[in-house]
Design a protein around this nucleic acid. Sequence first.
DNA 1: TTACGTGCAAATAATTTGCAGTCCC
DNA 2: GGGACTGCAAATTATTTGCACGTAA
Lengths: 146, 146
Amino acid sequence: MGSRAWPEQSGCPFHDLRRRLRQVGLRPTRQRVGLGWLLFAKGDRHVTAELLFEEAAKARVPVSLATIYNTLHQFTQAGLLREVAVDGAKTYFDTNVGNHHHFFIEGENVLVDIPDGQVAVATLPRAPDGMEIARVDVVVRLRPRR
Amino acid sequence: MGSRAWPEQSGCPFHDLRRRLRQVGLRPTRQRVGLGWLLFAKGDRHVTAELLFEEAAKARVPVSLATIYNTLHQFTQAGLLREVAVDGAKTYFDTNVGNHHHFFIEGENVLVDIPDGQVAVATLPRAPDGMEIARVDVVVRLRPRR
DNA sequence: TTACGTGCAAATAATTTGCAGTCCC
DNA sequence: GGGACTGCAAATTATTTGCACGTAA
């Protein structure tokens, strides 16, 4: 779970969200709170800008696509989200910012978390001179069994 | 090295290239041979369409950007190239189609092969029902040491 | 010859940006 | 009130496509 990014929760998720936004230096505006609610209320998720935009429309959160993009990037910079690298044109954002890896379902273009501990990278290469390892991403590509 | 895709080499790289193209069902046209030359003559490489386009211009290989894209995809489908998934908007093509993984240098947006054997994935997750593992990609993200 | 390739320019798709107007603190 | 935020539309960037023309077999 992505709980690492959500310390000190109280009883009220709404207040937690607003407080968390302030903590990371973002004003809890209507759209940020609305999007945060969509993103973080349902457990770990993987969204694209377009998908979140549709959800916001359904949920009557008034927000433009441009603001969706802005917000996703601000949340990412604040450590509330993480960008996931898969191929395909779209960018995926993951509400789970903890250390974990992904399945990528080819054809469907869907991302799924790999349950913790099911992937282990045994040997890591040494980083070249002057470089350090920022992160290790493992993507296990799945296709329908023929 | 990506030699798996290049069986039976003779003394003449040009002939090898033309023959290889025919083998995979692609007519050895001027632009395909020219691009193949740029791609495969210098060992393992990671290129984007734009980069290859510039190289072609320098090397006086007359080719349009649209044809670069077509050719890269045809080569990929033929197994001469492999698409690599990193984030960032661009698509990278790798002349090494063997089993290996990558460093991705943040900021510079450059891909580098990780020498074989320096990364090992110890435990693989079981694939969900009806799915099988098509491929496992490991990307080690590097940043300048602070 | 003739199907396969290529170039060009226009079309898409995802994302970003500039700026005028709006809203939180 | 004032600076941060948002929306809209136009701009960018990467890539794809349609179609007339060129070229390898």
